[in-house]
Lab assay of single mutants.
Amino acid sequence: AREMGVIAAMRDGFGFIKCVDRDVRMFFHFSEILDGNQLHIADEVEFTVVPDMLSAQRNHAIRIKKLPKGTV
């Protein structure tokens, strides 16, 4: 199932999404941004959540798609 959120932080090559449906900041890597979009803080996005290979306690966001403002 796809989830929605807002870009909360951007770093060098990765960032975090503030999720709508869960009280966490979800890690993502820039390589998972679809359509070659440039994302910025406060952009609204949808994404798929998958378990982190390195840590069973953590998840991360993949297949991130920018949404029109006002969607979330």
Rank of each mutant, 00 (worst) to 15 (best):
A1F: 12
A1P: 09
A1N: 12
A1H: 02
A1Y: 15
A1D: 10
A1S: 09
A1W: 09
E3Q: 08
E3A: 08
E3V: 06
E3C: 10
M4L: 10
M4N: 13
M4V: 12
M4D: 00
M4E: 08
M4W: 08
G5C: 10
G5S: 07
G5D: 02
G5A: 00
I7H: 00
I7G: 01
I7E: 00
A8I: 14
A8L: 11
A8K: 04
M10T: 04
R11P: 01
R11L: 15
R11N: 15
R11G: 13
R11V: 06
R11S: 13
R11D: 15
D12Y: 07
D12C: 05
G13N: 13
F14E: 08
F14T: 07
F14V: 09
F14A: 05
G15L: 03
G15I: 01
G15T: 00
G15Q: 04
F16N: 01
F16R: 02
F16K: 02
I17G: 00
I17P: 03
I17L: 03
I17W: 00
K18I: 04
K18C: 06
K18D: 14
K18G: 02
K18Y: 12
K18Q: 14
K18W: 11
C19L: 05
V20M: 15
D21S: 12
D21G: 10
D21N: 10
R22Q: 07
R22I: 02
R22K: 13
R22L: 06
R22V: 04
V24T: 10
R25T: 14
R25L: 12
R25P: 14
R25K: 14
R25G: 08
M26P: 05
M26R: 06
M26C: 12
M26H: 08
F27M: 14
F27T: 10
F27G: 06
F27R: 14
F28E: 15
F28W: 04
F28L: 06
H29K: 15
H29N: 09
F30C: 10
F30Y: 11
S31R: 14
E32H: 15
E32Q: 15
E32S: 11
I33K: 03
I33V: 12
I33Y: 02
L34Y: 07
L34V: 12
L34T: 08
L34M: 13
L34I: 13
D35P: 10
D35S: 10
D35A: 06
G36R: 08
G36F: 06
G36L: 05
N37S: 13
N37K: 15
Q38V: 13
Q38I: 15
Q38S: 12
L39F: 06
L39Q: 00
L39C: 06
H40N: 13
H40R: 12
H40T: 12
H40M: 14
H40P: 00
H40C: 13
H40S: 14
I41C: 10
I41F: 07
I41N: 10
I41Y: 02
A42V: 01
A42D: 12
A42M: 08
D43C: 02
D43Q: 01
E44I: 04
E44M: 03
E44Y: 03
E44G: 01
V45Y: 03
E46T: 04
F47T: 01
F47H: 02
F47R: 00
T48N: 12
T48I: 05
V49I: 09
V49E: 05
V49Y: 05
V49C: 10
V49W: 02
V49Q: 05
V50L: 09
V50R: 09
P51Q: 13
D52N: 10
D52T: 12
D52F: 06
D52V: 08
M53V: 12
M53T: 08
M53A: 15
M53R: 07
M53I: 15
L54Y: 13
L54T: 14
L54K: 15
L54P: 14
S55F: 09
A56G: 13
A56S: 14
A56H: 10
A56I: 11
Q57K: 14
Q57E: 14
Q57N: 13
Q57S: 12
Q57L: 07
R58K: 12
R58I: 12
R58H: 10
R58Y: 11
R58A: 13
R58E: 09
R58F: 09
R58N: 14
R58P: 15
N59L: 15
N59K: 12
N59I: 06
N59T: 12
N59P: 10
N59S: 13
H60C: 12
H60M: 11
H60Q: 10
H60L: 09
A61E: 06
I62K: 10
I62S: 07
I62P: 00
R63D: 11
R63W: 08
R63L: 08
R63S: 10
R63I: 04
R63H: 12
I64S: 00
I64N: 01
K65M: 05
K65I: 06
K65V: 09
K65C: 05
K66I: 02
K66E: 00
K66H: 01
K66S: 03
L67E: 03
L67P: 01
L67K: 01
P68A: 09
P68L: 05
P68V: 07
K69S: 10
G70C: 00
G70I: 00
G70M: 03
G70Q: 01
T71P: 03
T71V: 07
T71R: 06
T71C: 05
V72F: 03
V72I: 14
V72N: 04
